[in-house]
């Protein structure tokens, strides 16, 4: 296997509303940031891959206008997944493994502020049986949270602890949307939103973009003092029909973590794509993480959730901490679909 590292990561601030900025303007900020951090230009990139969702913008081909941010003249080798950009990174990583290319730029973007974010993921559901019932994304997550409480494994207090931890960690993250000092008691005193979830159990609506650069050993070492090497990467999917799954566990996250080799060494940090507090508990268990691992040092998804680049953000947040020497080995997780249906796990090492 060829050695590949994340050598650079840039993100736009995780704001509730990016105002007048359009997709192209957000992508330019992230892409220029990632290239700039590495001291390279788009001419140094062999392959570009992105992740985005047409339904956020209410028109087909959101990713097409984003190409205007790349300087793709003359033409570039490029591809796009209608998935979180973490999967775009997987496609690029695969392409590097083929041996044809040495570097890749990956970006994701989403402007959720100007659409009905709570209803967009409803369109992911089985179009014949579930979608016509319009179950919104929070309600679907609440079903899972309820199942988890009923299983007796966790309590609402455990959910609140996840939020306390996220808000506390986010205080050190200048890009976070939500941060601060809270107590479990304070949070539990809040009313429920979609029972048993409270508003703080749900990730915020966020606008933004993120980009990373991948490189093979020779270039990674030339462009980065301490590259974050990808030593394992895998993704798996569970059944879509919620009725056939045990919602209190994540089989696909467990399998992806095993295949990616999460347990092959000590995990200093983990960034988990858990849009709802209870999902962090499910993921932690599935991936075999214990209290020796700092979970979501950036504040994670509850501190800012750019739909379509949140998974790439997790990879970037882990990579940044390895590049800076803050951590030696970390795990980044990305998810897609209702109740964590699909999961991608990346292991990064210094």
């Amino acid at each position: 296997m060829r050695e590949v590292a994340v050598i650079s990561y840039a993100q736009t601030p995780k704001v509730r509303d990016a105002g007048a900025k359009n997709d192209v303007e957000l992508v330019m900020e992230a892409v220029h940031g990632a290239l700039g951090n590495a001291g390279i230009t788009n001419k140094d990139i062999d392959f570009t891959c992105s992740g985005s969702c047409d339904y956020l913008g209410g028109a087909a081909f959101a990713f097409v206008s984003a190409v205007d941010a790349l300087g793709a003249v003359p033409s570039i080798a490029e591809s796009h997944v209608e998935m979180d950009a973490a999967w775009a990174m997987y496609e690029a990583w695969m392409k590097i493994q083929m041996g044809h290319i040495d570097t890749a730029l990956i970006y994701g973007f989403g402007k959720s502020s100007h659409c009905e974010m709570r209803n967009i993921p409803t369109l992911q559901m089985d179009p014949y049986y579930y979608q016509p019932l319009w179950p919104d994304t929070v309600s679907i997550a609440a079903l899972q949270a309820r199942a988890l409480l009923e299983s007796g494994k966790y309590t609402e207090e455990d959910f609140a602890k996840v939020v306390v931890n996220s808000r506390k960690n986010a205080k050190n993250n200048p890009n976070a949307q939500l941060s601060g000092d809270y107590t479990v008691e304070q949070l539990l005193a809040e009313p429920t939103f979609v029972s048993p979830l409270r508003k703080h159990d749900c990730c915020p609506v966020t606008d933004g973009a993120a980009a990373i650069v991948l490189a093979t050993r020779e270039k990674a070492e030339a462009w980065c003092k301490r590259p974050a090497w990808i030593t394992g990467i895998d993704h798996r999917i569970d059944a879509h029909n919620l009725g056939t799954r045990d919602l209190t566990v994540s089989e696909s996250a467990k399998l992806a973590a095993e295949k990616a080799g999460v347990k092959k060494g000590k995990v200093d940090i983990a960034e988990l794509y858990a849009p709802f507090s209870h999902q962090e508990l499910i993921l932690k268990e599935a991936m075999g993480l214990d209290d020796s691992t700092v979970i979501n040092p950036s504040g994670g998804t509850l501190a800012g959730h750019v739909f379509m680049s949140c998974g790439l953000d997790r990879i970037g947040e882990v990579a940044d901490r390895i590049i800076s020497g803050e951590a030696d080995r970390g795990v980044a997780h990305a998810s897609s679909g209702p109740c964590l249906q699909q999961n991608l796990v990346t292991v990064l090492e210094g």
């Binding site: 969702c53 339904y55 081909f61 209608e82 369109l123 179009p127 699909q342």
Partner: peptide, 15 residues
């Protein structure tokens, strides 16, 4: 585009 069927990220439903 997902707009052609009004169905978002169909890979999930098709698993």
């Amino acid at each position: 585009p997902d707009f052609f069927e009004g169905h978002l990220m169909p890979e999930l439903y098709l698993a």
